[in-house]
Design a protein around this nucleic acid. Sequence first.
DNA 1: CGGCATGTTTCGCC
DNA 2: AGGCGAAACATGCC
Length: 257
Amino acid sequence: MPEGLEAEIWRRALTATVGRRITSAWVDHRVAPTEFVSVVTGLSVTAIRRAGKVVLIETDGPTIGLHFGMTGRVIVDGDAPIDRLEYASGRDRPEWDRLRLFTNGDGAVAAVRLNDPRRLGRVRLNPDTTGLGVDMFELSVTSLEDALKCRRIAIKTALLDQAVVAGLGNLCVDEMLWWGGIDPHRPAKSLDGDETKRLVDVVRRRLPIMLRRGGSTMGDLSPDVRAACPPCERDGHPLRRDMIAGRTAVWCPDHQH
DNA sequence: CGGCATGTTTCGCC
DNA sequence: AGGCGAAACATGCC
């Protein structure tokens, strides 16, 4: 579930906690620093930001960083802003909680829960975000050209690199390459100016649409499509699944080249 | 049961 | 030295 779009949706939901004071906290110590609870108890939330796929809860003290791994999700005041597909049965099981923050006036419901069955997500204090590339919502032709021009790796792999573009994940990358008509195997540096511009245009156009629809699973290459590889919506040619640098790429050999 | 999964980090090989 | 791919991580689901 979690790519930058999900992080953005959760960022917006978490703004409800701005101005509140963290009265108590609990974490699964396997995913958070040992001093976490003692450090954050008593802090006041001042702002919620996002850096790529990471949500940053800013306070009058240290910043709390939420990484979601493959299956993390956020529940704010008992309400999950995104509910879909994966782990659909018995979701939000309490034993999958990795973080609970309680704030003044909440009663028994945690203001913030990080629920993550697979436990690849992380809770960090003052996370280092300096290595991230340009944010996916601020992508420009020149920034992408600069980032791609020396790379021989597949364009798909380059776009997944958070140092190139921050926030795009496997689903969004396949979606953008599908819309842009670009073969995911192409070496990044082989894209010409027109193709790079086309890709940037597609990212600018499609990301807000997917955000409105509810996240990275709401593209035309939905998880169902990815699993079944039916004929391409655009030209009827069967979609293909290839492994590129360890990640599944779903694409249309007919209109992507 | 085997395989697969929206991510990141680490290791080892050029 | 640095770029790159594979493996590891951890667990649920089909």
